[in-house]
């Protein structure tokens, strides 16, 4: 039951990424290329996602507890620190270079393109390195 609902959420999330255009690295980079032929349409992805999540999340949290778990996950850290700023800055460089953030890259595994598969292996290696180094 837990796995089925989580898979449903993943399917829906991936569907949203496909519908929105986030699975096209050229469009992502077109959105980030403010100085070039800027394509602002992907800003509406964030607008739709944040708006929907903010409204529904407010009502969900008011329930007190999730349906199949004892409590809501609360991110531990609450202050701005060098890890947050530095890590986010590094992630942005990789995102700008590739046009892939983690979600769309995983959805794109389905196309079995060698570039995407090697990219995801490098993502995993980068995550392992982060655990070891920082």
């Amino acid at each position: 039951m837990k796995a089925v609902s989580a898979m449903m959420a993943g399917l829906l999330f991936g569907a949203g990424l496909c519908i929105s255009g986030m699975t096209w690295p050229s469009r992502v980079v077109g959105f980030l290329d403010v100085a070039g032929a800027w394509d602002p349409s992907l800003a509406f992805v964030m607008l739709g996602a944040v708006g929907t999540y903010a409204a529904s999340g407010y009502w969900i949290r008011r329930r007190g507890a999730p349906l199949l778990a004892s409590s809501f996950e609360r991110p531990a850290a609450s202050t701005l620190d060098l890890r947050l700023l530095g890590g986010s800055a590094i992630f942005g460089v990789g995102w700008g270079l590739s046009g892939y953030c983690p979600g769309p890259a995983i959805v794109s595994i389905a196309a079995l393109a060698p570039v995407t598969l090697v990219f995801m292996v490098a993502v995993i290696v980068g995550m392992l390195a982060a655990k070891r180094i920082v």
Partner: peptide
């Protein structure tokens, strides 16, 4: 893009509602 964003938001809300988890990939 807006429609896709709404679907992403609903998917994230589903994970929060059922599992209480943040849909951070």
């Amino acid at each position: 893009s807006l429609a896709g964003g709404v679907v992403i938001g609903l998917a994230s809300a589903l994970l929060l509602l059922v599992h209480g988890r943040v849909a951070g990939v």
